[in-house]
Amino acid sequence: MNPSRYGWMFPAAILLVGINLRPSIAVIGPLLDRLQQDTGLTDTGASLLTTLPVALMGVLLLGAGRMRDVLGDRWGIALGLILILISDGLRGSWPGAGTLLATAISGGIGIAMVQALMPAVIRLQAGRRTAGLMGLYSTAIMGGALISGMAGPWLAQAWGWPMALGLWAVPALAGLLMWRGAAGLIVAVPMATKDHFPLHRSRRAWLLLAFFGLGTGAYTLVLAWLPPFYTQLGWSAQGAGGLLGAVTFAEVIAGLAVSLWIDRAQDRRPALLTAIAALLLGMLCLALAPLVMAWPGAVLAGLGIGALFPLSLIVAMDHGETPEEAGAIAGFVQGGGYVLAALLPLLAGFLRQNLADLAPVWWLMALLCLVMARIAIVLRPNLPLKVAVAR
């Protein structure tokens, strides 16, 4: 193996793979009104375009260990990228309500496969650089959402919404090719044979799951319903997409800051509480003054969400004493967390359909920020999950 080639190719593969884990979801929000008009989807049905992939991420992530045993890291991640590629391509080739819902399922499975396996790969290959590369990975995920959320309305205006959805097969193909090149350089490290720690018995594991789920729920909620909220207030699809772009740009900045700084912090709680405070202020801006405070609210929400996503994963993996344990904890936390996160956009769709108003959802998320702050306070550093089983 060429060390210099490995030194740039593995991070590059993480970057390109991560970029492909959100476009199929993020591109929907700014185009949702047009999609509903052309396909006849109701608000609740439209919310399934976000809820289904997010819920499937959770369900499959709960079986991350079994998936790894059957497929292995290299082939499992490659197969996930293939599913994403095919799903995006089908949306561009056969547009319609049925296709949108079916590809929400297949794309969600592909995303889940990658997200179930990638944290353990990073932990195994990166060693002491794990936190930094996890920050790069999560920032890449948010970067993919930024690009697709902003570009979607302009692509739809130029070539129609089917092409705006289908073009994301191209970066998926690029990510697959890069992963194929990097996977051959990855050193296969055998996992230790040992009894699996029963994570469901640990109160700390459930707190980590709830924390990740609520933070990710804020992300999926904003991703799915912030653009329709503003188009309902009279904004254009391009303007609403730009606002979502501001959210995701702030997420990328916060994610980069976490990746550069987090290795220096032994206690993650000050960073967690700062991120929660930014998200809380953003939600209050959207609830109290959505027109006057749209841009500050978007930026604050993005900063909070962007920091919380990598931090919640890093904090969860901190509780593992070995790569195997860290991967198992990440799978458990993400699995249940994504199932929890899927409920928020579904609830928002139900409220919009029955109340014609999304403002109560921002108030609910503000309240959940207080719950997250309470959880963050008890997440003391350097406490392996086996020690915390009764806590």
Rank of each mutant, 00 (worst) to 15 (best):
L133F: 12
G108V: 06
G110N: 03
M134T: 15
T139C: 12
A78Y: 05
I77T: 02
M118Y: 02
I111G: 00
I105R: 01
M113N: 05
G127Q: 03
R68T: 04
A131C: 06
T99A: 06
G107S: 12
S87C: 09
T130Q: 05
M118L: 13
G132C: 04
Q115D: 07
Q115R: 09
R66M: 14
I77Y: 06
A120I: 06
L60A: 07
G92T: 09
I86P: 10
R123N: 11
A131S: 13
S138G: 06
A112S: 04
G127M: 09
A78K: 05
L136K: 07
A120L: 03
L90M: 15
L71A: 13
S93D: 10
L79I: 05
L62W: 08
Q115H: 08
T139G: 01
A102M: 14
I84S: 04
L101C: 09
R68N: 13
M134I: 15
V114S: 02
S106H: 07
L117G: 09
T139A: 15
S93I: 12
M142K: 00
R68M: 12
I86G: 02
L85K: 09
G63L: 08
P95C: 06
R91Y: 13
A97S: 14
A102Y: 08
T99C: 09
V121H: 00
